Simulated scan of single mutants.
Amino acid sequence: MTDTVTTASPLSVNTLARPLVERLLRDADTLGVKARRSEEGVCIVDAGIEAPGSVEAGLLIAQICMGGLGQARLACSEQQGWPTWLEVQTAQPVLACVGSQYAGWSLAASKEETGGKKFFALGSGPARALAVKETLFTDIGYRDHSDAGVLVMEVDRPPPPIIIQKLLRDCGLQAAGLTVILTPTTSPAGTTQVVARVVETALHKVHQLGFDLHSVVGGSGSAPLPAPSPDGVEAMGRTNDAILYGGRVHLSVRCDDAAARQLAQQLPCVNSSDYGRSFADIFKAAGYDFYKIDGALFAPAEVWVSNLQSGNTWHGGAMDMALLMSLWRKEA
Rank of each mutant, 00 (worst) to 15 (best):
F290Q: 10
V305I: 15
M319Q: 12
L323S: 02
G317H: 05
G317I: 13
G287R: 01
G317R: 12
I293E: 03
D320N: 07
A299D: 11
R329V: 14
A285H: 06
N312R: 09
G311L: 07
L327H: 05
S306R: 11
D294A: 05
Y288L: 11
G295P: 01
G311A: 12
A301D: 08
K292R: 13
Y291N: 14
Y288M: 07
A322I: 01
Y291S: 13
M321R: 00
M325I: 11
M321I: 00
F298K: 10
N307E: 03
S306T: 15
A296T: 13
T313C: 04
D320K: 12
W304A: 12
H315E: 14
L323V: 06
A296D: 15
G317D: 09
A322N: 04
I293N: 02
L324Y: 11
V303S: 10
A318R: 14
L297Y: 00
D289T: 05
W328I: 06
S326E: 09
K292W: 00
E302V: 01
S306F: 02
A301M: 13
D320Y: 11
V305M: 08
A285E: 11
G311R: 08
F298D: 04
S306K: 04
R329S: 11
W314S: 07
S310E: 01
L297I: 11
D289Q: 03
G287P: 03
H315D: 03
L327W: 14
W314N: 03
K292S: 06
G316W: 03
Q309C: 07
A286F: 13
N312E: 15
S310Y: 00
N312T: 13
M319C: 15
Q309D: 15
T313F: 02
F298C: 10
G311P: 06
A322Q: 12
N307Y: 03
F290I: 14
E302W: 03
A322L: 09
D289R: 11
Q309E: 12
G295C: 11
P300V: 02
D320P: 06
M319A: 12
L323K: 04
L297G: 07
Y288P: 08
G311T: 01
W328Y: 10
Q309P: 01
G287H: 01
M321S: 00
D294G: 04
N307H: 04
A296P: 00
W328L: 13
V305P: 06
D289H: 08
P300C: 06
M325F: 04
A301H: 10
Q309L: 09
M319Y: 02
L327A: 03
M321G: 05
W328R: 01
A286P: 08
H315M: 02
F298V: 09
D289E: 10
W304C: 06
Y288N: 12
E302L: 04
G316S: 07
G287Q: 02
E302T: 06
M321D: 06
A296H: 10
M321E: 02
L297F: 00
N307K: 10
A286Q: 10
L308E: 14
Y291L: 13
Y291F: 15
W314M: 07
Y291Q: 14
K292G: 01
R329Q: 11
A296F: 06
L327M: 10
M319E: 13
L308T: 05
Q309S: 13
A285F: 03
A299Q: 07
N312F: 09
Y288H: 09
